[in-house]
């Protein structure tokens, strides 16, 4: 795994997240807060998963890393989903913080972090987790505001709506791939 694959993966994940949003007037008004909330939730899950992994590693060294990491990431996602369900169920649902989506984000954004070549030291892995969460938030916000901006372009009718968005996601993924390839 390297950044050249990981960063486009984030772009695809953000696109998936955007496609799962309902398309009504209220969702439009909450698009930006929803993107920020999902980004923060991802950050929490990454930090929690990483922390738990460090603890597990120090308690019982020698466990297979892929298994432990996926179990811990899933556990942190479900923990967060449960807490949200208990404390702010209505708002969380309106902002799109459903447990399948949280689980997906946690696994897809979290697992590759442990196999990046730069994740050798604890500080570096923390830094990578934070940066990836920040990038993910930015991408979500980007997709939240894209439909409005695309409306103003004189696009051909065939490209209106989802296809245009998919093209944008591809362009972003390509650009991120270039960036990631240079980083790794």
């Amino acid at each position: 795994m390297n950044f050249g694959l990981y960063l486009p993966l984030l772009a695809g994940l953000a696109f998936c997240n955007h496609c799962r949003r309902p398309a009504d007037g209220q969702a439009d008004a909450l698009a930006l807060p929803a993107a920020i909330a999902m980004g923060l939730a991802t950050a929490i899950m990454l930090l929690l998963g990483g922390g738990l992994l460090t603890l597990a590693d120090s308690a019982r060294p020698g466990l297979p890393l892929p298994l432990v990491a996926s179990v811990l990431q899933a556990a942190s996602a479900l923990l967060l989903a449960g807490t949200l369900q208990r404390l702010a169920a209505g708002t969380a649902a309106a902002l799109g913080l459903h447990w399948p989506l949280l689980l997906l984000n946690s696994l897809l954004a979290g697992l590759p972090l442990y196999f990046l070549p730069s994740a050798s030291s604890a500080a570096a892995s923390l830094c990578a987790a934070l940066l990836s969460a920040a990038l993910f938030t930015l991408l979500l916000a980007q997709f939240a505001t894209l439909p409005h901006r695309l409306q103003r372009c004189a696009l051909p009718a065939r490209l209106q709506g989802r296809p245009a968005l998919l093209l944008c996601a591809l362009i972003i993924a390509l650009a991120l791939h270039g960036l990631g390839a240079r980083l790794s």
Binding site: Q26, A29, L30, P33, A34, I36, A37, L40, A41, A43, I44, L47, L48, G50, G51, T54, A88, G90, T91, A92, A94, L95, L126, L130
Partner: peptide, 23 residues
């Protein structure tokens, strides 16, 4: 890591509260 975690949780709480008011 713990500090950052707490910060992120606090921020998420704020976002949830503000959008609850909007709702």
């Amino acid at each position: 890591r713990l500090l950052l975690l707490l910060l992120a949780i606090w921020l998420l709480g704020k976002v949830l509260r503000s959008s609850a008011q909007k709702l």
